[in-house]
Design a protein around this nucleic acid. Structure first.
Lengths: 234, 234
DNA sequence: GTCGCGTGTTACAAACTGTTACGAAAGCCC
DNA sequence: GGGCTTTCGTAACAGTTTGTAACACGCGAC
């Protein structure tokens, strides 16, 4: 079980620091952004499980950013509004946020809403593979979860060790999202961080047995599965 | 994104003519409108990248028109106000404009604001991973966003490092718009300004691996992608 | 035990990326 | 134009990160 990652978009430095500290104490990993550009690059940079965004961001408009993000990605968003006028405005237009909360708010209430949205989004076991789809196609390859078999685009069956299979499952559960070595290790070893170059070697062997282009290196960050996945029933 | 198209909404004929002439000299395509009806029909008539609108338009109210347009279209708008009272009024209510500028204004300042708004508006799509257009063509070259591959006009595949790819993406998101080293660095590094000559080196290496003519140097300013881009579906 | 296999460690080469230095080019002022 | 200054291109270099071959270890089968 990995850390939940929140992206906090708030231009008021003091409020942001306070919120971030509180949320970190509650066990979340918090990334901060203070404007539109920062929010978008944070989104691009790595996995985000939920966005907490202020409506008024200096000259940027939180509502528009929310709609923009929603048009592109499926990330749960909670909007925070300072003014009741904003609150009504958000309720009026359908911005696509999953929830709204007004400043000043009760921290416990905010926490409850965050958890509720995360739970609704089903994002809690984000690094863990879901059982119900037994065949996953990715970049021409196929993974049969029931038989634990991997088939190449040419129809050949590839023999992967159990650890290599586990690594593949982790990537399949997070396609197109860069995963750090630590995140991978945590997902594989139930909570132990990466040591040495073990993950590098695992990735290298998986690449060797499949397609070197499948897993791309994000220098300084980690690895990412460079293929979209399509889940199918058996 | 070829020529930037501005729609100038201004009822004072003399001021409009002067502004239009100035903006055309600066390389913009300028369409003029003098009232609400004209502005709306111009908007229906063709593509508009940015609206420059006076607050006081005879009997029409610029603020209302701005909100009206905003409700329908996603066009960046800069409001021009003659009176400081108007300025305050705009700042108070959130009209939906991207920027405000007060008359009388410094032409260079206006230009800078126009470019900033255009850049902000233009940069958004590609900082977020866009699903729709996965292949971008530019000056005979092709960039496949899904595979992160670059293909030369001759059909050769070019190996770019992740940072070089990121730089290319920044240019592709802002074709024909000069980008300062700081702007490039901010886009690349999540908000850190440029230090030393790192950006120069990056640009140099990208030029070396692609086509030196693709990226033109704007002496004293920065760099600009000297090719039009066309987005295509996969 | 010994063999085979999977897995982690180490070591070293290669790749990536920023820094520095210096010559070339471009602007500027006379 | 000629000299001066600023800016740019790029080669050389260095620090860091990654790929991978070789090896070591553990463990089960026999």
């Amino acid at each position: 079980m990995s850390l939940q990652r929140l992206l906090l978009v708030e231009d008021d430095a003091e409020m942001a620091a306070m919120l971030a500290a509180y949320l970190q104490r509650q066990g979340f990993h918090v990334t901060q952004a203070h404007d539109r550009a920062g929010a978008l690059s944070a989104l691009r940079g790595g996995r985000v499980d939920l966005i907490l965004m202020d409506v008024s961001l200096g000259q940027d408009d939180g509502v528009r950013i929310c709609a923009e993000i929603r048009a592109e990605q499926d990330v749960p968003i909670i909007m925070v509004s300072a003014l009741s006028a904003d609150h009504q405005r958000m309720a009026g237009y359908d911005v696509g946020a999953d929830d709204y909360i007004a400043k000043p708010f009760n921290p416990d209430l905010l926490l409850a809403r965050i958890r509720a949205v995360l739970r609704r989004a089903g994002r809690v076991p984000s690094l863990v593979h879901r059982r119900r789809d037994s065949v996953i196609a990715f970049g021409g390859w196929r993974y049969d979860a029931r038989r634990e078999e991997v088939t190449s685009p040419g129809g050949w069956q590839v023999a992967l060790s159990s650890r290599e299979l586990a690594l593949l499952r982790v990537f399949l559960a997070n396609p197109l999202i860069p995963l750090s070595r630590d995140e991978i290790a945590v997902a594989l070893d139930d909570g132990h961080a990466a040591e040495g170059r073990a993950i590098d070697m695992l990735v290298g062997r998986l690449r060797q047995k499949t397609d070197p282009a499948l897993i791309r290196t994000e220098r300084g960050l980690g690895y990412v599965l460079a293929a979209e996945v399509a889940r199918q029933d058996a």
